[in-house]
Design a protein around this nucleic acid. Structure first.
Lengths: 243, 243
DNA sequence: CGTGTAGTTGATGCTCCTCAATTTTTGTGG
DNA sequence: CCACAAAAATTGAGGAGCATCAACTACACG
């Protein structure tokens, strides 16, 4: 799954042949904030970023994470509705939104690409809604790990550049739950954590992880405390082999 | 909030000046199914519909409800990814997707409208994700009622044409929870149900409902069972008067 | 070496789901 | 119009799943 407030990507900006500016950021810097003028659109070249909403009183809500090749920042209105921050040192390409829109009015192929990008972003956002409605914490985290592996293409090793807070806000659970689930996944040998902060992970049993992503009802992080709940000895009920 | 897989609406189709077909449906009929060829885009003229995904094993997941003036059915790919069904007798206008796209290539204003519609759909879908992440059942249902009132413009009286199943799948809770919450809202005098099936509702205390939509921690449907939990006498904590 | 931040771990119980029984409504044929 | 069955909605008991709060550990950075 790619992403974003209109799913721009590197291919789109290349197709548009726009003048681009190269931007370098350190860790934990803000690219733009909620309310800022939306003059540019961006594509990630290196690094990792997070797109979020600042909420009134309580904590923020993470909309998505951004990796190389993925774009963000396109708005129809004059101002940004979200905030984007770097998670580690990052390199971006920025192009003027006006230039992109102008190019789209003359180049029909580009206009169609732009529309496809927007429709793609709707599909991704609706998929996320669907997951939040139906998936339990363990399933959700398992699926997240699988997608992180796909998006980072550095085979098998996953780098989680975000904090537990970002991760928890994105998945709709608490940081404690994320911590516990990752811990049990490691104890069970499904994943292996390389560093102390558990931000580098290797998937050891991808099949199992995929099964957990579609149904984790026989696998929960409190199992060790309570003992099992389903004693039906169905440790591999073959019904969910969808993906 | 309007909606949809690219937020088409009546204004957009009018602007496009396309040839449209008028369609009449009875209750519980299917407009199109998942996988069907996506040849047309639609706008609701009368009635109410539901857009959903059919899931593999378990029950379906409701993406949104559609009311007069709202559009649906736009796809970039050749096939529909969702299913749309009527909730009651409905009248639709349909236009050829090809005609719309062709019109957009010659009319730049229309192309921009189309793009705006798509970006608007992203915003709505992300808002929905945000709610599913952060809101509790009572808050979610309260907000749903408020939005239904806004969208139906027939002042104060809300018509809920969907079943409890659709409602529950849309909000990410069970039908029992929906039933219980509506019941307590009625007992508390916040709403009043006109018919036996609780499908016609009048909002009696909109302020209270708005407060519940942003924080229902001092109001829950099991309060009568357990007694209160927060005895802090903060019955109107003015901090959230955002909308 | 303290201080701060990120993350873990444990105890407790709220929130809501699950399952089952019941009631109400709708639809159908006599 | 009235049985009858099927569907929709309500209601209750009980407990699963996860949040909350608090204490704790480990590293990072002056």
């Amino acid at each position: 799954v790619g992403f974003t407030l209109i799913k721009l990507d590197r291919a789109l900006l290349t197709a548009a042949k726009l003048e681009t500016i190269e931007l370098q950021y350190g860790p934990d810097e803000t690219v733009y904030e909620h309310g800022a003028r939306a003059q540019f659109v961006y594509v990630v070249d290196e690094g990792a970023l997070v797109r979020l909403r600042l909420l009134s009183t309580s904590r923020s809500s993470t909309s998505e994470f951004l990796f190389p090749g993925e774009g963000f920042g396109f708005e129809i209105d004059r101002n940004h509705r979200d905030t984007v921050q770097t998670l580690k040192p990052s390199k971006l390409f920025a192009a003027r939104k006006e230039d992109l829109l102008n190019a789209a009015t003359t180049d029909r192929g580009l206009a169609k690409l732009l529309l496809s990008a927007a429709v793609g972003a709707v599909l991704v956002a609706e998929e996320q809604s669907h997951r939040l409605r139906t998936m339990a914490a363990t399933e959700h985290i398992a699926l997240f790990l699988i997608e992180m592996e796909r998006r980072q293409s550095v085979s098998r090793k996953i780098d989680l550049p975000m904090t537990r807070y970002h991760l928890a806000d994105y998945l709709g659970v608490t940081i404690e739950t994320v911590s516990r689930v990752l811990n049990v996944l490691q104890e069970e040998g499904v994943i292996q954590c390389l560093d102390v902060r558990h931000r580098q992970i290797i998937i050891r049993d991808k099949r199992r992880l995929q099964r957990l992503a579609s149904d984790a009802s026989d696998f929960d992080y409190w199992r060790k405390r309570n003992g099992r709940k389903h004693t039906t000895t169905s440790q591999d009920s073959d019904l969910c082999r969808s993906s």
